[in-house]
């Protein structure tokens, strides 16, 4: 059962399964720049996320952390730099971005559930339209995934009937149902009432413990401290400091990190 020799077409670089080859990072951001008009939000970010790693990105509002996350699945077009997902350069104009996106789950601050569809349909529609699963198979996966986030009994409801925390858990289930290799969380708890934050963080924490590759933009320092493998502090559009949570959050090396943490802790 030997592999046939690699095809000689140079354009077709096969995606390397990071589960097989741990040297290939799940997400590799190289020299990423992003400007909106004259304003440069990202000024050269280098950041790699390994397979199974949980990386929390922190920073003041306006530091570019959401923009960074949105560049990773090209919801924002990078101005310069490269983003390589599991060995595939998605900033290459020839790259099929839809194909890459189905391997990247994304959870938004505002949930963005489809309000005209039931909870179940929210979770099945992309499985059918994108992955080509049958209705029965998609429903089966959806019910199991909704059960994972503790909302199987809400399958028949419409999103408007759910609390914010429940909506966000459905949004997580919607992304998980696509069997993504990695998940992006864009301030997933920032729009929630304080008493609903916990249930969403609990789901995210379970996911992290199960080995999901996660890139999490968050203001929840407690979550970052307990769950992250690595914390990245973004400031002025560049990575200012990164390392294990105890180090970055406990004894930061950079003045700006200390200053940011002081402000955050004062608020809490």
């Amino acid at each position: 059962m030997s592999e046939p020799p690699a095809a000689s077409t140079p354009a077709a670089v096969p995606a390397v399964d990071p589960a097989v080859d741990p040297t290939v990072p799940a997400i590799d951001v190289v020299g990423l720049r992003k400007s909106f008009g004259a304003e440069e939000v990202l000024a050269g970010v280098d950041l790699a996320v390994g397979a199974g790693e949980v990386v929390c990105v922190i920073g003041a509002s306006g530091s570019g952390k959401s923009t960074l996350l949105r560049c990773v699945n090209r919801l924002e077009e990078p101005t310069a730099g490269r983003i390589v997902i599991e060995g595939v350069d998605i900033t290459d104009p020839d790259c099929d971005v839809d194909d890459v996106r189905r391997r990247i789950g994304m959870v938004f601050q505002q949930f963005n559930l489809f309000p005209h569809l039931s909870v179940l349909r929210n979770v099945t529609i992309a499985q059918e339209k994108v992955l080509g699963r049958s209705r029965a198979e998609a429903v089966d996966v959806a019910v199991r995934t909704l059960d994972r986030v503790g909302l199987a009994e809400k399958a028949g409801d419409f999103p408007a009937r759910l609390s914010g925390g429940q909506q966000q858990r459905v949004a997580i289930a919607r992304a998980l149902a696509m069997d993504p290799d990695m998940m992006l969380f864009d301030e997933a708890t920032s729009a929630l009432d304080p008493e609903l934050v916990g249930e969403v963080l609990a789901v995210m924490r379970t996911l992290a413990e199960e080995g999901m590759t996660m890139m999490v933009v968050t203001h929840e320092m407690g979550f970052a401290r307990r769950v992250a493998d690595r914390v990245v502090f973004l400031d002025g559009g560049v990575v200012c400091e990164q390392g294990p949570p105890d180090q970055v959050l406990g004894s930061p090396e950079q003045d700006r990190t200390r200053q940011f943490l002081r402000q955050v802790l004062e608020r809490e």
Partner: peptide, 8 residues
Amino acid sequence: EAARSLGM
């Protein structure tokens, strides 16, 4: 954005 992020 949500639809595109699901690969549609």
